[in-house]
Amino acid sequence: MKQKGSSSNGTLESRITFSGSTRGGAGASESVTPVGDWTPPACWYEPRSAEEFAKHVEDNYNETVNMPGQANYAKASVGQFRNKYKDGEYENYNLDKKDEGNWWVAVRDEDRWMEPEAQVCDKAPFWVENGDAPPVENAVTPQVLAELAYNRVQLPTTEVTLAPAAATKVNLPTWAWLDKAQFKEVSVTAQLNAGGLNIQATTTAKPVSLKLEPGTAEARTYPTSGECAINDDGSIGEPYVKGKAELDPPCGVQYLRSSGDGAFELQATVTWQITWTGTGGAGGELPDGTFGADQEVTVQEIQAVNR
């Protein structure tokens, strides 16, 4: 899957590709939400060879000036941009230096290009000699790739299994669990091969806990914190089996009043630990992520229950 982006002078397609558990894959899935104020980059800079950059500018110029009804100010703008790199500050797109460096260009996330964060990469295309570091923030690196992959990790839509399943009873502990098969790590790999740069990074999300919020203050959770830790086998909680009705579940909820004619919205939120590895042995941690889903729970008022 390619990432498309845009620049201030014509559409520019990113050279980054993504593979793994990405958006648009088979099956129901949801994006991970970072914990805290951190968000993945909404824009970044990528390298382009002199030939690629020259073709992009020339194609955009010709398309604009030859478009019927195109406004004069638009023609003037692309003309000024073209002149800067063809006959002005630079000479013929530095094609005679094509083996000595690359152009670096701004790219915006196709899903976030209108956000203020996507406008901070506002530096016009600039030349960088081979071996030199681009003098900007968000120049693409393995870590930037990992952060972009974070935004494309898709988690399986997970519904917590409850017992009783159809409807529970007031003061009756309801068991909750997630099987290992439903609750496993996922990963996305981002790769960039452009302008002589070939780097990649893999971002992995590993489930570590499940938090239950009953949807009413008149309830208690198991454990008291509502935070159910992952078991050694990768599952969460424990399936209910006959004969455990009098036991407290390792993960669950107990409602203290009826839901009446409606239902309570039980929210089950999974916390995912996010790590990454990349080219050259780079790697580290990224902010934890969460994904929560609501489930309707009907609670009936029955004083004596046999199960």
Rank of each mutant, 00 (worst) to 15 (best):
E100G: 01
E100H: 02
E100I: 01
E100N: 03
G101C: 02
G101Y: 06
N102K: 11
N102H: 09
W103C: 00
V105S: 08
V105L: 09
V105A: 04
V105Y: 11
A106R: 04
V107R: 08
R108S: 05
R108L: 03
R108I: 02
D109N: 15
D109R: 13
D109P: 08
E110P: 08
D111L: 14
D111Q: 13
R112F: 13
R112E: 14
W113A: 13
W113R: 13
M114S: 14
M114W: 14
E115M: 12
E115T: 12
P116G: 02
E117F: 08
A118N: 03
Q119G: 02
Q119L: 06
Q119T: 05
Q119P: 07
Q119D: 10
V120L: 04
C121N: 02
D122R: 11
D122N: 15
K123F: 14
A124Q: 15
V128G: 09
V128N: 00
N130C: 06
G131K: 07
G131R: 06
G131M: 11
D132T: 03
D132A: 12
A133E: 15
A133N: 13
P134Q: 00
P134Y: 07
P135F: 03
P135Y: 00
V136K: 15
V136I: 11
E137Y: 10
E137V: 00
E137C: 04
N138C: 10
N138M: 12
N138Q: 15
N138G: 04
N138E: 11
A139P: 07
A139D: 12
A139R: 07
V140E: 06
V140W: 09
V140Q: 06
T141G: 03
T141L: 10
P142H: 07
P142Y: 11
Q143D: 04
Q143I: 03
Q143T: 09
Q143N: 10
V144D: 00
V144S: 10
L145I: 03
L145K: 08
L145H: 05
A146S: 06
A146R: 12
A146Q: 04
E147Q: 15
L148M: 15
L148P: 13
A149G: 12
A149R: 09
Y150P: 08
N151S: 15
N151C: 06
R152W: 13
R152V: 12
V153G: 09
Q154K: 13
Q154G: 15
P156I: 00
T157M: 07
T157G: 07
T158C: 01
T158L: 05
T158G: 00
T158V: 03
E159P: 01
E159M: 10
V160K: 03
V160I: 07
V160D: 02
T161E: 10
T161G: 09
L162H: 05
A163S: 11
